[in-house]
């Protein structure tokens, strides 16, 4: 209860602020350096200008980041509030979603890459427009080919969709933890004063859990940005994994995994390993 209410003392606050300022300073220096190299001088970093040009990439990253934070974080937080505050614990929808969320938040990001290669890309028709992946071996051709992908906005939507999938379970988990950290007596005191659920939520639970919710969302987002290196993985994996529509065997495995995960989410509800419930 006290940890939730504790504020950093002036010394800690000063230390935290200086660390934040320092980080900001270093990052802005780096960005300035990059900009200076490319735009304030004539030096070109690479011969393949469209790929190596930092500004479109930077802008792309920002645009991308904003899209996933808007979609993913909003969806995740809403979902967590609905699960935690509205659905009773014994509800089967809640049990199913919570199980799936637990499983999804443990899935390594590479598998999302595979999902993109085997499902999203083939079915979106992006390959038809670019005549498939370039032949293996010549990296320069590869980057040229990648750059020819760039005009295709479908790819952007695919990337956003994948990352929303990656972010949402993590955001849900973090938000649920934050909501559970609001002490029961706090809620009860508000209920006992005659507040309804909405008032308890807005005046009470949200302000109390907001710092943790934001921290959780930031963690999920930074994790997402970190694995956006996975895009490179996708392009490279084009040499070893032949992209194509889902094969029968792949569909079978996918189906089996789905059935198992649903089964296990009900099983974990019935026989919980560790009680994380607050009541």
């Amino acid at each position: 209860m006290n940890s939730l209410m504790s504020r950093p003392n002036p010394k800690q606050k000063f230390a935290l602020q200086s660390i934040a300022l320092l980080t900001l300073g270093v990052v802005s220096l780096l960005v300035w350096n990059v900009l200076k190299k490319t735009y304030l001088s004539d030096v070109q970093v690479s011969s393949v200008a469209r790929v190596s040009d930092p500004v479109p990439n930077l802008l792309g990253d920002i645009y991308f980041f904003l899209s996933i934070s808007f979609l993913g974080v909003l969806l995740g937080i809403t979902c967590a509030f609905y699960l935690e505050e509205w659905l009773p614990e014994t509800n089967w929808v809640r049990c199913l979603i919570e199980g799936q969320v637990s499983i999804l938040s443990g899935v390594p990001s590479l598998l999302y890459g595979l999902l993109v290669v085997t499902v999203f890309l083939p079915y979106s028709g992006a390959f038809q427009r670019t005549q498939g992946f370039p032949p293996a071996g010549d990296l320069n051709t590869a980057s040229l080919q990648v750059s020819s992908f760039q005009g295709d906005t479908t790819l952007f939507y695919i990337a956003v969709l994948t990352f929303v999938l990656l972010v949402v379970p993590r955001v849900i988990k973090a938000t649920q933890e934050a909501l559970r950290s609001v002490p029961i007596p706090m809620r009860e005191s508000a209920y006992a004063l005659g507040a309804n659920r909405w008032q308890v939520l807005t005046k009470h639970v949200v302000p109390l859990s907001l710092p943790r919710v934001i921290a959780g969302a930031c963690r999920a987002m930074s994790c997402a940005l970190a694995v956006s290196a996975l895009f490179i993985g996708i392009y490279i994996s084009g040499y070893t994994i032949q992209p194509g529509r889902m094969s029968g065997r792949f569909a079978l495995f996918l189906g089996a995994a789905l059935v198992l995960s649903i089964f296990s989410s009900f099983l974990s509800q019935r026989y919980p390993l560790a009680s994380t419930r607050h009541t």
Binding site: P185, M186, L193, A195
Partner: peptide, 30 residues
Amino acid sequence: SLPELRKAVGMVFQRPNPLPISVYENILFG
């Protein structure tokens, strides 16, 4: 109505559980 009932029947709990806001706002919360 539950809010009206709880307005008429106040409750004090085992552990003091003031809301984590100012003293002033605590009293006005209800």
